[in-house]
Design a binder for these strands. Structure first.
Lengths: 158, 158
DNA sequence: ATCATATTGTCATGATGATGTCAATAGCGT
DNA sequence: ACGCTATTGACATCATCATGACAATATGAT
């Protein structure tokens, strides 16, 4: 393959990547604003989401893995959420140190409130876009994601 | 509109947004690795790109606006690039304080080298994806971007 | 020419995230 | 039971980024 020219797909993908960078920042900022009144940030919200998404209570390190984030920062944020009263730690029968993270009632209410804010927000954002196109975009981004995550997995094996 | 349920498009878009978050991190990490040997990071590379993309030399604050980033951090990175010998400051005939940022020869060579690394990388990444799908994804993301940037502009006017 | 306003670079500060280290604990093979 | 390895939470450090304040400078209205 010619290493000095981008293919048409490479060209298109370059533009897409630049949009991903820009959108990431814009969405995070918008998300921060959306849930600021609840005492949340995008990062805290995302971690609450991971706790909710898990079938059963998990220790911090497992949540961090679910989020592909590093343990230490997730730990710090979860400690803050605990001080804030949104999550609590439960004893882990299988591990004395690795306590299980659970939502408190207040945490559940806060997460639900965030969800109620997100619904009209995302519905409005999707206005004018076709479901087919959004799903095509999703397929493309998922395919890209898998390529990278494949690389990461390969490295971890090495 | 029902404010308690996501529309199908809203649902699809929610998934897309989560992919954007994840991909942003993955691509930044991959980009850092790609150009680390040149003494660059994704952030420095992006700023060099803005300098190249500008038709004529610009002061730091203008570059920051092009990048939708804040002045102060762009300033810091450009100061580092200057110490590194990749950019230089030229007197601005129209403004004594706001010097113009230009690439040095070494900066140009470094940027060209990064581009030569990016081309096979992005070509390879696009492998297996159709140009049409990538362009559809690009259109969707651009449409989203415009919505947010419209909001930002509206705020700045207020 | 004068003055109010905007722009720009600089500095300081705090929030966030990444990374390395360490001790406590758990799991597993023997 | 013993010992080796992996996992986990805690702590420290550093890089990056966001934000506010400030002085110097430029711009535009009068």
């Amino acid at each position: 393959m010619d290493k000095t020219k981008r293919t048409p797909a490479g060209d298109a993908l370059t533009n897409l990547v630049l949009d991903i960078f820009r959108l990431n920042g814009l969405i995070l900022t918008a998300g921060d604003r959306l849930v600021a009144g609840l005492g949340l940030t995008s990062a805290r919200w995302q971690i609450l989401g991971a706790i909710v998404a898990a079938e059963r209570p998990q220790p911090v390190a497992w949540l961090a893995r679910d989020l592909w984030a590093n343990r230490q920062n997730v730990q710090r944020i979860i400690n803050e959420l605990q001080k804030q009263g949104l999550v609590a730690f439960e004893p882990n029968p299988h591990h004395r140190r690795a306590q299980l993270v659970v939502l408190t009632d207040q945490g559940r209410r806060t997460f639900d409130a965030a969800m109620r804010l997100q619904i009209p927000w995302i519905n409005n954002l999707s206005d004018g876009l076709s479901v087919e196109d959004i799903e095509t975009a999703h397929r493309v981004l998922t395919a890209l994601r898998k390529k990278f995550e494949g690389d990461v997995d390969a490295e971890e094996q090495a």
